[in-house]
Amino acid sequence: MIGYILRRLFALVATLLMAALVIFLVLEVLPGDPAAVTLGLNASPEALAALHAEMGLDKPAPLRFLLWLGGMATGDLGESYTYRVPVAQLIGERMAVTLPLAVLAILLAVAIGMPLGVVAASRHGKAVDAGVMAFAQAGLAIPNFWFGLLLVLVFAVGLGWLPANGFPGWQAGLGVALKSLAMPALALALPQAAIIARVTRSAMLDTLQEDFVRTARAKGLSESTTMRRHALRNALIPVVTILGLQFSVLIAGAIIIENVFALPGLGRLVFQAIAQHDLIVVKDLVMLFAGLAILINFAVELLYGLIDPRLRQA
């Protein structure tokens, strides 16, 4: 048991280091000079050299890689080339937008997707089922950024209920802030809701055929009690798993959606940082995203391993 966990932990650390190396190397190849971006068209070579030294870019690459790793290990993420403030501070500020957005999107996706899946499964083969499946197909086919634009057309341009984009900050009041997150969260939630509806439906159909459900039915439990007590509970496991696995999809979605709605979140930060060659911010953020995905995978594997001893052999 302990051997298994140690093996997995070793793999985890190796994967994280590998990820860091890949990210660092990829950004080394990226053409462009952050100092040139800061100093503009009239920059003199001496000023550029001075700024290189200030940004630590004059050191050799292997040393910079080690310094970056060491910094991350001690919680120092470096200083942004563009904004000249600690990256940790930038990430903190932007996290206050992205995290609520992602949580809101997941809640919406579950709130829309699960009931639809349950209804579809309980009316298997009926018109309702067909309707839910059609919704799921549409949800997967409609690009979320286009859905976002359509929402803006209806609720901002047409009805004027919600702000078209931007984020006033939490200090503007909870209601105002939530209002500007409503459309982006919904746009982000749509494909997730479609997936959850499908997963819930098929998981419930599967469990409905299993022996213990048949037994429950045979015991004379009503259809709705059977659904609630057995089928739904069993369907929760794949839904939670999918939510975990969809994390990186959600992040990817956030990159585009935050750009559609001009939200000052992590997705927009990483996109702008790439555009401005603020490589230290890019490095830290990509590492953060990848690291989180790797950790989630690790947790899922570990859990399955604990539940199912057979998997430990692999």
Binding site: A19, A252, I255, F271, V286
Partner: peptide
């Protein structure tokens, strides 16, 4: 390993290079 990186982010970085 490739799965760990959000696909859009990977594509953005690749096209940036």
């Amino acid at each position: 390993f490739t799965h760990a990186f959000p696909a859009v982010l990977t594509a953005i970085m690749m096209t940036a290079i």
